[in-house]
Every structure is written in structure tokens, then in C-alpha cells.
């Protein structure tokens, strides 16, 4: 038996809630409202009350805190144990997790321990009156959407692709906050973090104006960055440039990165593989520059310029600097 309750894993960075968790809450409110389900935000560690209240303002009906000092930082061993126990006890019908690196690290193992079905990277979720959720999941680099259901076991689990859904916020919304104390006496964190290196980055899926650099930039994006600054745009890259470590993975566009929803995207030296173009399909206007007239990227562009990025970008920079 399960309860008419959908849980959302609330990923925290200190007292700040990670965007993907809030986006899932936003979408999940649609599902829960329709059939009178409860939406629960689940937090781990010792977050402030205010943080728990925020999850409610972002759409949850209530928050549950699995309270333990050792849970303030992510640990696969400790998170899986605490969440497993809580889910077995409270029996939610679905459990949704942002498809962030930690979220994905958590989801697979937790689903295996719960002996339940797991879908990954959902970009669509619909629920029927029986509480069965149909998850829409892109496959083959984003050319096909597979509709996946988990009929027999509960909770129905899925990770959800960041940047897909919209947040909702109601400053007056109230709900209960419950605290559960997890039993961590028989688990040990086996992965020790020696060093953490993170920077605060703009969420690419929220970028209104974006310049994307690909391999055609020759792997040097200094000028692209300068251009982005002058043109008041955010910067994104294709996978090969992120693989080289030129920028953090969070600035990667495509099937294994972020999807853009920009008003305008300027694409520089990108060949237009399916893994990439699935990430620009929601842009309003796409402008591309590529040296090769037959580049596939032009089939995904509104305005096409056949030219050398290493010539055009400096010219653009000059032009914009002149005006400044």
C-alpha cells in the first residue's frame, strides 16, 4: 500500500535550495492538485526552518526533515540509508529527484535497495487518476521521447532533467514541517571528500541571450567570453569544450547538458550533432556561424552565416567596443 503522497528530494547547497529541486516542485504541484495528492519536500541534515518553509512556498504541502548532523553534506551511503528507511515507513507513491550529479548518484542505488523502478532524466510527467505517472524520457541523443511507466512497484522513481520545468512561488503559502530522526548507527560514509571546488554559475536554462562556442572556436574561448560580456549574453559550450575542462560542465548545452530556452542564441563553430541540437530546440531565434556551408547546424538555425569564427568574432568585438 502506498499513500497519496509524492516526494521531492530537496537538494541543498547550504541554506540555498538547488534550482532543479524547485523546478520539480513546480511541476509536481500540477500532478498532486489534480487528484488530491500531498506534495512533500524532503530535506536532509539540519537545515534552518526558513529553508524548509521555502520548499512549501515553492509548492510543497509539507516538508519532512531527516535530521542528522552527518547529513549536511551529500554522502551516498548515508543518504541512501536515511531515505530508504523514511520511504519504507511513509510509503510515498512517487519519489522525484533532480538529475544533478548528486541526484543521479543517489537515485540508482536507492531504487535498487527499494527494489523499485527508476526512470532517468524525465522531461515530462503526467499522472492518471490511479496515481500512475508516465515519465517522458529522451533517448538516442534526444531524437525520441520514450514514455515510461512503473506499474507494479512503489515508489515510482525518476530523476528529472534540470531546466525543464518552471518554478512557482507563493510567499503566503503555509504547511507543516515534520522532523524524523534517521538511524545511522549501522552505516559508514565510505567516500571521503578531500577538496571541493565549486563556483556559483548562472543557470543556463534561464539564460535569455546565449552565445555558444563549439570546436570551431579552436578550443580558445577567451574572445567568445569577451564578446558575450559586450553583447550582454551568457556563455555556453558544446560537450568537447566542457570535456577539455575549459568551463565547468554546468555550461554545456545538449542532451547531457542543459537545454536552452533563450530568446536568441548565437552558435559559433558547432557541427550540429543530435546530442547538441536537442538542447537548442526551445530557443526562439538561432543564429549560427560555421565555416562549412553544409554544416548540419544550419538546418537548426534561423539565420546562417558561412564564415570563419576567428575572423568574425574579433570584428564583432571591435564593433561593440566602438559603440561603447
Amino acid at each position: 500500500m502506498t499513500t497519496k503522497d509524492i516526494w521531492v528530494f530537496i537538494e541543498r547547497e547550504g541554506e540555498e535550495i538547488a534550482e532543479p529541486s524547485l523546478e520539480i516542485l513546480g511541476k509536481a504541484t500540477e500532478l498532486t492538485k489534480k487528484f488530491g495528492y500531498t506534495l512533500t519536500g524532503i530535506l536532509l541534515g539540519t537545515p534552518g526552518d526558513e529553508t524548509a518553509r521555502e520548499t512549501i512556498r515553492y509548492g510543497a504541502d509539507r516538508a519532512i526533515i531527516l535530521k542528522h548532523d552527518d547529513l549536511n553534506d551529500y554522502s551516498n551511503d548515508l543518504y541512501v540509508k536515511s531515505l530508504f528507511d523514511a520511504i519504507r515507513k511513509e510509503t510515498p507513491t512517487a519519489f522525484l529527484i533532480g538529475a544533478t550529479p548528486y541526484g543521479r548518484d543517489l537515485a540508482g542505488r536507492l531504487a535498487a535497495r527499494l527494489r523499485t523502478g527508476l526512470t532517468a532524466n524525465a522531461i515530462n510527467m503526467e499522472m492518471d487518476e490511479n496515481g500512475l505517472v508516465v515519465f517522458g524520457v529522451p533517448a538516442y541523443g534526444g531524437k525520441i521521447l520514450a514514455e515510461i511507466v512503473c506499474e507494479k512497484t512503489r515508489p515510482q522513481m525518476s530523476t528529472v532533467r534540470p531546466g525543464t520545468f518552471n518554478k512557482v512561488y507563493d510567499p503566503k503559502r503555509e504547511g507543516k514541517i515534520r522532523t524524523l530522526i534517521p538511524d545511522l548507527s549501522n552505516v559508514r560514509n565510505r567516500v571521503k571528500v578531500l577538496e571541493r571546488n565549486v563556483s556559483k554559475l548562472k543557470d543556463l536554462s534561464k539564460s535569455e541571450r546565449t552565445i555558444v562556442g563549439g570546436n570551431g572556436t579552436g578550443g580558445d574561448i577567451t574572445l567568445v567570453k569577451r564578446l558575450a560580456e559586450l553583447a550582454n549574453c551568457d556563455i555556453g559550450v558544446t560537450r568537447p569544450l566542457a570535456d577539455k575542462g575549459l568551463v565547468p560542465r554546468d555550461l554545456q548545452v545538449g542532451s547531457t547538458g542543459y537545454s536552452l530556452k533563450s530568446k536568441v542564441a548565437l552558435i559559433l563553430g558547432v557541427s550540429g550533432s543530435e546530442h547538441f541540437t536537442s538542447g537548442i530546440k526551445d530557443c526562439e531565434t538561432v543564429v549560427s556561424i560555421d565555416i562549412d556551408e553544409r554544416s548540419e547546424i544550419f538546418n537548426h538555425s534561423d539565420y546562417c552565416i558561412v564564415g570563419d569564427v576567428s575572423e568574425i568574432v574579433p570584428l564583432l568585438i571591435n564593433k561593440l567596443e566602438d559603440k561603447a
Binding site: T116, G117, I144, A146
Partner: peptide, 15 residues
């Protein structure tokens, strides 16, 4: 535990 119920084409928008 999961089954694929259907496949839907994601056609890229006409540019």
C-alpha cells in the same frame, strides 16, 4: 520494473 509504453518522435522545430 519499468516498461516503455510508447515512443514519441521529438521533431526539431522548423527553422
Amino acid at each position: 520494473f519499468t516498461i516503455v509504453r510508447g515512443l514519441v518522435d521529438i521533431t526539431p522545430p522548423k527553422r
